[in-house]
Simulated assay, not measured.
Amino acid sequence: MDEFKHVDKKYRQIVLLPNKERVSFINQKRWISYPIAIKAIQELKNLMDQPKQQRMRSALLIGESNNGKSSVIEKFCEVYGQPIVDEEDEILKKPVLVTEVSAPKVKDIYISILEEFWAPFKTTQTESELRKQAFDLMRVCEVKMLILDEFHTLLAGTAKQRQNALAELKMISNKIKIPIVGAGTKDALSVIQNDPQLQSRFWVMKLPKWERNKDFVQLLSSFEKALPLKQKSNLTSKELGERILEISDGNLGNLHELLKVCAIEAIHSGKEKIDIDIVEAFSWFTPTKGQREIKLT
């Protein structure tokens, strides 16, 4: 399979599969490594490894919608946060707890935590009951980090609700002595802007939009190596690279989806590579901030 040197070794056997199976492979979710993501994952690991103290350093992971936040968190959990069953004590150890918030409601925060443990509870329980149950589980399961996705949704509700929710998060960090990571859009910064104590605790990591630079070229190269096409596409060429960047609006999720549909078209058309004509055919592929359209004509 020397003729498929443009494809990563671990994917070269996929190139020889029937079209249907190659398309299925392209549609599967997989991790594409790039420098900023690697750095973000390492910073999360540093947070998790910090010594337990009264004021644990926490972080906000900020980025546009569909720009890689969830992928970074998933990869971090895959590498450093896998649950482990202590067979001797018959206890599940869960180093990283990931949950999602949808409003600044204290009960909802604890309910979301309990749901991640598959713990039985009643919605009629009081805040203090839910808090004690969640704290007990986090201690027993040796949780080392709490990640709250959609952190910007804490802006919803009243100022009093938001204040109470933030005070609760501060209590979790203080009592359990774990860092908290909030992942969300740039609006997440507004959640903590009126609380100097939280501002000093939450360091900010931003996942920027992509620009035409060496990191972007490396990203395109990584994508090409993961596409089971029989011909080299040369995605890193100036013409293709700049057009892909323009259509995707520098958004990682858009770029990923664009390359997926282009690769599938390359298979169906028999071209076996992504060229400028295929990319132009999908120039209607609108960025995340706008509507997506399925082209029927």
Rank of each mutant, 00 (worst) to 15 (best):
G63S: 14
N67M: 11
G157H: 04
I84V: 14
V98D: 01
E115C: 08
L146F: 01
T126E: 05
V101K: 00
A134Q: 04
K107A: 08
Q133N: 10
N164K: 15
S70K: 14
I113L: 12
I62F: 04
T126F: 01
G63Q: 08
L92Q: 07
E74T: 13
H152P: 03
F151N: 01
S102H: 10
K122M: 13
V101Y: 00
K107N: 09
E116R: 15
F151C: 07
P83N: 09
E74N: 15
A156V: 04
M145I: 14
T123K: 15
I91E: 12
E90Q: 12
K160P: 03
L146W: 00
L114K: 13
L155V: 09
G68Q: 00
S128N: 12
E129G: 09
S65N: 11
E64F: 04
I111F: 02
P104C: 06
Q133G: 06
L137H: 08
K160F: 06
Y80T: 08
E150P: 05
N66T: 09
Q161M: 12
E78P: 05
A134I: 04
K160S: 12
V98M: 10
Y110M: 03
I84M: 08
R162V: 03
F151H: 04
K160M: 11
E74Q: 15
T99I: 06
S112V: 07
I73R: 01
S112L: 07
I147Y: 02
V79R: 10
Q125K: 07
T158K: 09
A159S: 14
Q163C: 07
V101H: 00
W118T: 12
Q133W: 03
T99D: 05
V85R: 15
I147Q: 02
V143C: 10
I91A: 08
M138R: 00
K105W: 00
V79Q: 11
E88C: 05
D89R: 13
K94R: 15
L155P: 11
C141H: 14
A103K: 14
D136T: 08
L97E: 05
I91H: 06
I113Q: 01
Q133C: 05
G63T: 07
I91M: 08
V79H: 01
I62A: 03
R162A: 02
L137E: 10
I84F: 06
F121S: 05
N66L: 08
K122W: 06
A156C: 03
I109M: 13
E129Y: 03
D89I: 03
C77L: 03
V96P: 01
T123I: 13
E64S: 13
F121A: 05
F135R: 12
K160Q: 13
T126R: 09
V85E: 14
A156E: 09
S128I: 13
E100Q: 14
A134Y: 00
R139T: 11
D136N: 11
G81M: 14
Q82I: 07
L154S: 11
L92Y: 03
L155G: 12
S71P: 04
L130V: 07
L154K: 00
D149W: 00
E150K: 09
D89L: 10
A103N: 08
T124V: 08
I111K: 15
T99H: 02
A119I: 07
E100S: 13
P95M: 07
W118Y: 10
K132N: 12
P83Q: 10
A156S: 11
H152G: 01
P95H: 06
